[in-house]
Design a protein around this nucleic acid. Structure first.
Lengths: 248, 248
DNA sequence: TAGATTGTTAATCGATTAACAATC
DNA sequence: TAGATTGTTAATCGATTAACAATC
């Protein structure tokens, strides 16, 4: 069991948690994000309590799945009552690591980069883009959303000086591996990659790929196969990787 | 068996295909996109033949998985030889429905919309954004990437007149459901949704959600759980839906 | 021929769900 | 109390993989 599991294992201090729970399915993490969004929406409307049944219904999954997903991390509900929404929101944020803000470096300030800069969903979830970099001397020095574009040459110093852990890579495919190498050298811990290339990274640097062409191909497949699945969220499913609680 | 399966079932005309193959796993479709990207890359370098072993190694999956994925749709290889790359590329394109171009309507021409407009990966994969719409009268009439921004009021007429099947929704969360309703009324068949809301759509309209906050939360989870999985592509995994070959 | 690699089966592995005692 | 709902187990379902005969 690693840090987060220990931290979350007895949130109510009333039971021994997750004995024999086994590894966390990958899909569970994606669903936790969706639970969180749903819970935040209920919270904004002033709802104070919910049930696994209600949460599942909103996302098209079973109540058993919701409860199972949560119990990988502890016990958050009250039998007969359900879940206290503010409490569960805090718990899920802690599990996902968004109970504290993350500073994110953005590399590549084209349209996609600017879209990410302007995306309020990031800030809302505790991700703050604090440093932006580009290769293009025409762009360097520009101020966008209150941030000055730095030269890619400064990336290494800035990332290591500020101990930035996360980066979003929004550069052309041809430059992505080079940028990734720079980030790795500078001590980055996780990369969100938008470039349509398979990045090669050391094991200790985590990677999430966002591949828009893949998403659109999923959609065209669904459309031409009328009988196929109804919808499809962006919960990630990796090419076979170790299960979540296995060792890296 | 539906259209595509019949079409693909005997690509080499030499065997009875996919008897008892069962439904196509959802993850298989996502991997087909990745195979395609890998194959195109090999093809560009002039490589003519590959093997399940080579393809799997490039994506970190087993050779058995690659072969299994392909045999849901037919027999594309030669024992002892492997796969002819150009032939397999064509076959996968046909499976995914990208052997013919798709016309895509884009709704919302903010930074994200512009990023999508400029994304060469779409065109390369046969997706062409031919119509763009926005709500903002300041933006309507502007020419972006050779396309004139139309009023959202014209969306319905344009989509139905041109029988456009796919749309990308890149509007704020608050407007997304309204836009989706408009698209559905106009006869759209598939929606790629970038707005962070759960869209409600009739069953016959397919949906793929791209949720950037979810992706970043996956990344932060991975980073704070050092022992977690190494990486994570954007192959979609839905909250439980029907399997691919089941009926809609 | 010997070596390589496919397509496919059966075995394994992992994730989801139904069911229910425990609890409020 | 009766009704609701949890946490958890065992059963089910689905996806991956090892192994191998068939084939080039």
């Amino acid at each position: 069991m690693n840090q987060i599991f220990q931290r979350m294992s007895k949130p109510k201090g009333n039971k021994t948690a997750s004995t024999g729970n086994g590894p966390v399915p990958r899909a569970t993490i994606g669903r936790l994000s969706l639970y969180l969004r749903q819970l935040e929406s209920l919270d904004e409307r002033g709802v104070e309590t919910t049930s696994s049944n209600q949460m599942g219904a909103a996302l098209g999954i079973t109540d058993a799945q919701v409860r199972r997903d949560l119990t990988y991390f502890g016990q958050f509900g009250q039998p007969g009552i359900g879940y206290q929404i503010p409490e569960l929101i805090m718990a899920i944020r802690q599990i996902l690591g968004t109970d504290q803000p993350w500073s994110v470096a953005l590399v590549g300030v084209g349209h996609l980069g600017r879209a990410l800069l302007g995306y309020r969903g990031f800030v809302k979830r505790g991700f703050q883009i604090n440093h932006i970099f580009d290769h293009d001397s025409q762009v360097i020095g520009q101020v966008i959303n209150g941030l000055t574009v730095s030269s890619i040459n400064d990336l290494s110093d800035t990332v290591s000086a500020h101990r930035i852990k996360l980066a979003a890579v929004a550069v052309p495919a041809s430059a992505a591996q080079e940028v990734a190498d720079l980030l790795v050298e500078s001590g980055i811990e996780g990369i969100l990659n938008f470039a349509p290339v398979t990045l090669l990274l050391p094991d200790h640097v985590k990677l999430v790929e966002v591949n828009l062409a893949v998403q659109l191909e999923q959609l065209s497949f669904l459309v031409i196969n009328e009988s196929a699945m109804v919808s499809c969220s962006s919960i990630s499913q990796a090419p076979k990787q170790d299960a979540l609680s296995s060792n890296s």
